[in-house]
Nucleic acid binder design. Sequence first.
RNA 1: CGGGCUGUGGCGCAGUUGGUAGCGCACAUGACUGGGGGUCAUGGGGCCGCUGGUUCAAGUCCAGUCAGCCCGACCA
Length: 578
Amino acid sequence: MKCSRLIFPTLKETPSDAAIESHRLMLRSGLIRKLASGLYSYLPLGLRVIQKMENIIKTEMDKAGAQEFRMPLLLPRELWDETGRYELMGDLMMKVADRGNKDFVLGPTHEEAFTSIIRDAIKSYKELPVIVYQIGKKFRDEIRPRFGVMRGREFIMKDAYSFDMDEEGLNASYQAMKQAYINLFKAAGLKTVRVGADSGAMGGSGSEEFMVPSHIGENEIIVCEACGYAANDEAAVCGQNNHEKKDNEILPVEEVDTPDVRSIDELVAFFKTTADKFIKTIIYRYMTQDSEDIVAVLIRGDLEVNEIKLANNLGAVNIALVDDQTIKKVTGAPVGFAGPVDLGKCRIVADDSVKSMTNSITGANKKDKHLINVNIGTDFEVTDFLDVRMVKKGDLCPECGKSLDSFRGIEVGHIFKLGLKYTKAMHCIVLDENGKEHYPIMGCYGIGVDRSVAAVVEQNHDENGILWPITIAPYHVELIPIKYDGRMKEVSDSLYTELWNKGVEVLMDDRPSRPGFKFKDADLLGIPIRITIGEKSLAENKIEIKLRATGETEFVEISEAVKRILSIKDDLESAILG
RNA sequence: CGGGCUGUGGCGCAGUUGGUAGCGCACAUGACUGGGGGUCAUGGGGCCGCUGGUUCAAGUCCAGUCAGCCCGACCA
């Protein structure tokens, strides 16, 4: 491709609404343009990168024995009614009606669609296992799209689903996908960390996320440097923190006037003490399969409740804080004065952190009153002690007991064991060797394609622009004639043709611009190998080769150029693939 | 959903106590220049987000509305 014909509107100045580096650089280098909030167009260079990412994914999926499909974006409502997700997905799912007023949705994911195909196509255990996948558009009406292509509303996703006869088969499929993910992220030049994630009702090690460490990441990752434990903060479990009860003398409860003092911060200031002396009492409504109830959750004042862990512990499908009126009804006091003492009307559970607390401060369940010197056993009872806290840096590792660290990460891939949820709900049945009906067990494996590309930029750039890993760079080589004229033009043209013939993808900047301008653009674009054809070196029959990432420069005889470039390309590739 | 900020040529922005819109970049033409976004000259391009109001007069003041961005979304 020649720059004179290529549409890549580079920007010298930074667009004002780009908040992170990848967004800025993708905009500036003319890879993408915004059409509306959360909706981006890929221009030719951006598309090439996306397609390379897709091809890397495809290659590994196929290697793992997965087969490619292409599903519609628009899906009929009935499919979603079968699993109850039409309601469950809520506003995240874009709902539309056709001219006949028939309901459709823009697919935010495709479990139902794939399961319906398998249900019709596969009838016998002999046809299993299968792994099916597609790379295609998804639509999610995000509350707040942001960071460019990192969290868009319309985005490209690779989603794969495995169907197996039994747990053992599922494990094998899961392992195959895991290995494929490890390979493909590496091939794309992305450094990822694998962490344990929330797996809802499935439990165990059935859910892992591939995270790209980055300060702009939307997930908090908890890691243990000592033993390698790694988990999403939604899933991180807490080591048994010094739960030994201190030998404090148990003091009698006293009621204290605390006019208008509600939040932990206000209480800390009021009592002139620290947050860990308080027991927070939070009232939740939780729904299980067939019932609904209220629960008071106690936790030490300096900690936060992890609602996902709470829901899992309670066996709840849904959980939410109750409204102010309900608080008043349950506790007898307005918001801010709830406490466990004489809270007779509902179940009380406590985070493990509360176990060792003595002479604590809590709400008195009366307006403008708190209690001091509250003690478990003496003043109130707890039904269950659970691990429901949000794990933080400095907490203890559940595996080895050492102190945990944390960092932020971008989720680029997620693999997890789905179980029978969809096959059951959708009556996807195969016959086993005894002719008995059997639900296949599913696994689900996703990759955010746009997001992975953005993460590559996030991870590979400098102050001048992008530094593409050669495996997903829009082109391998950018060829810059200082002036596209005379001998420089001749040499450039013949190199251009020769390289393409040898399978090297070349972008030639044949524009009549000044050299400095072209160099700046080249740095922005970040094509890994830059060849400069200039008068000075040409006088010695040489061309210049410069690596974008390291700045390494060498001059090579024209006759040796193609060979040398080929070998540099190989070197760059094997440096990534290892 | 709540709070904050911003809407003025393609992009980045200025526009004072209200008086009929400007700068840089980009674009077009020409000349010079030619290894890190060059110089000069000339030129084209704006319903000042939208609607309504105040006023002799509104980019500017008021009300509403739409859009975008940022932060937060109940932890008692």
